[in-house]
Simulated assay, not measured.
Amino acid sequence: MDQRTSPFFSRFARNLSAIGIGVALVMGAQVASADELVMRPDINQAKPGSTYYVHGLSMNQITKKFGQPSRKLAPDPAKGTKYQPPITRWVYPEFTVYFEHGHAIHLVKHHKRPK
């Protein structure tokens, strides 16, 4: 019996091709997700000492650093609800600062939506 026509070789070839297709699909998915991360850089990961590092600053310190926001949104959820802590947002033209109990926890840069 020829090696290429044996049942073992036929099954081996099928399994090998299935594994190859699976690896190609996984690698393609990883590349797509990596591209998405690179395409959306933002200032959420600002390092201490940088302009956009706000973690732990009070509302007064944020006002001194960036000026008055264009909008101050009320705490969400409202006081007295079971969902705590309330989160307050201050919206600036290029970013939003999030506060928890009067201290900044995060700054998120606004992204332009693709058309």
Score class of each variant (00 low, 15 high):
3 Q>D: 03
6 S>F: 05
7 P>Y: 02
7 P>F: 02
8 F>M: 00
9 F>R: 03
10 S>K: 00
10 S>C: 02
11 R>K: 06
12 F>I: 05
13 A>M: 00
13 A>K: 00
14 R>F: 08
14 R>D: 11
16 L>T: 08
16 L>A: 07
16 L>D: 09
17 S>E: 05
17 S>Y: 04
17 S>F: 01
18 A>Q: 12
20 G>W: 14
21 I>P: 00
22 G>P: 00
22 G>I: 00
22 G>V: 01
22 G>M: 01
22 G>D: 05
24 A>E: 09
24 A>H: 03
25 L>P: 02
25 L>Q: 06
26 V>M: 07
27 M>A: 12
27 M>Q: 04
28 G>A: 14
28 G>S: 14
30 Q>P: 00
30 Q>L: 14
32 A>G: 08
33 S>E: 11
35 D>S: 10
37 L>R: 15
37 L>V: 15
37 L>S: 15
38 V>H: 09
38 V>Q: 11
40 R>F: 07
40 R>P: 03
41 P>G: 05
41 P>N: 07
42 D>K: 10
42 D>T: 09
43 I>H: 14
45 Q>V: 07
45 Q>F: 15
45 Q>K: 13
47 K>C: 04
47 K>P: 01
48 P>V: 14
48 P>Q: 12
48 P>S: 12
49 G>M: 09
51 T>H: 13
53 Y>V: 14
53 Y>Q: 14
54 V>L: 08
54 V>H: 14
55 H>V: 15
56 G>T: 08
56 G>F: 08
57 L>Q: 15
57 L>M: 15
58 S>H: 07
58 S>L: 09
58 S>N: 05
59 M>Q: 06
59 M>T: 06
60 N>T: 14
61 Q>W: 03
61 Q>K: 03
63 T>Y: 06
63 T>N: 10
63 T>Q: 01
63 T>D: 03
64 K>M: 13
64 K>L: 13
65 K>D: 05
65 K>A: 03
65 K>H: 04
66 F>L: 03
66 F>E: 09
67 G>L: 05
70 S>T: 12
70 S>L: 15
72 K>F: 04
72 K>S: 14
73 L>G: 05
73 L>Y: 12
73 L>T: 07
75 P>S: 07
75 P>N: 07
76 D>M: 03
76 D>E: 00
76 D>L: 01
77 P>C: 04
77 P>H: 04
77 P>I: 04
77 P>F: 04
78 A>V: 04
78 A>E: 03
78 A>H: 02
80 G>E: 08
80 G>H: 09
81 T>V: 02
82 K>A: 12
82 K>H: 10
82 K>S: 10
82 K>N: 07
83 Y>E: 06
83 Y>C: 04
84 Q>H: 01
84 Q>W: 02
85 P>V: 01
85 P>T: 05
86 P>F: 01
86 P>M: 06
87 I>H: 02
87 I>P: 00
87 I>S: 00
89 R>D: 11
90 W>F: 11
90 W>G: 11
92 Y>G: 08
92 Y>K: 06
92 Y>S: 02
93 P>S: 11
93 P>Q: 05
93 P>K: 01
94 E>Q: 15
94 E>A: 13
95 F>S: 14
96 T>E: 15
96 T>G: 06
100 E>A: 07
100 E>K: 11
101 H>S: 10
102 G>L: 05
102 G>Q: 01
102 G>C: 00
103 H>K: 11
104 A>V: 15
105 I>R: 09
107 L>G: 12
107 L>V: 10
108 V>F: 06
108 V>G: 07
